[in-house]
Amino acid sequence: MMLVSLFIFNSKMHYKKFTLRLVVFLLVIYSLDLMIGSVLEFLFFKQKTGPNYQIIESITTNKADLVILGNSRAQHHYNPRIISKKTGFSSVNAGLNGGYGIYLPTFQVEVMTINHNPKVIIVEIEPNTLSYNKLNYYLIKVLLPYVDRYPNAYEFLKLTDNYQKIKLLSKAYKYNSLIFDIIIYNLFSNKFAYVKSFIPIQKSLNKIDSVANIGVNRNLNTFISDLNMELILKKLIYIAKIKNIKLVIVNSPIYNNEVNDNYSFAGKKAIQIMNDNKISFWDYSNDTSFLNKYYLFSDKLHLNDKGAELFSNIIADRLVAEGIMKNS
């Protein structure tokens, strides 16, 4: 009996000690997290080059009339200098390498229009990418560093997992996997040239590659509709409408198309949403000026510098021709 009482007494003492020390430990964690997170936040928004800066600039200091948004195909295909020269309007390419989905341009448009409304926004989207893709959700975390300053980022981040709200209690978590970028782009900013975000690719597909079957081989049946991505597209269209911005969605050229029907059910649904909302959708995926012209491509999905030059001219001409941007 005495032994049992001793056990209970001991246990109670241990619970008390444990609870007390756990509280202290949590306080230490909270302080360190806040301290490190704040330093990283400061350094993150201090970057003057690199991929993160492209987003920061597009949503903060950008004052261009025409903004190009989207993924790597946006970044490598649209030369803002050519577009500005032909249209007479200032333009900026804020596309970003990395396969980010529709959520990134939507977030950028939502934030940039707080201070400045561009006249035209071009969003580079391959409509099939609005289908369900696990990677789409994984990559939404690119918006983590912005959530404190721009809380609307949470609308996208909450789609990633059910525990995002808990994770966001940590300040340091918002800079997860970014320490390397923060160090490099702060310390060596002069080593990374930044030319209005447009990055031309110098290499070309060679003839051997072009003869080989390197077409865009897709099984369209595997593309499943994604309601979240459709809603984000609708949101993008809605913001453009209420802010009176001309929104143009472009699917730029690809090297070769193996399938006759370009679009999956999900892709067609995305196009339907654009049509229903009278959004210009310019599809160059079957454009004969580019199809199978290996010397205009760096790989099957990306134009090289020559291809980008040709494509930028075509886009600029069309913007003028359709009266979207009238040459002054």
Binding site: F25, L32, D33, A172, Y173, N176, S177
Partner: peptide, 19 residues
């Protein structure tokens, strides 16, 4: 002990590959 394990947890938050 406090600092070491707190930093271990912070490292997980900062550098860990989630999901």
């Amino acid at each position: 002990n406090y600092l070491f394990y707190a930093m271990l947890l912070i490292s997980i938050i900062l550098v860990g590959v989630f999901d």
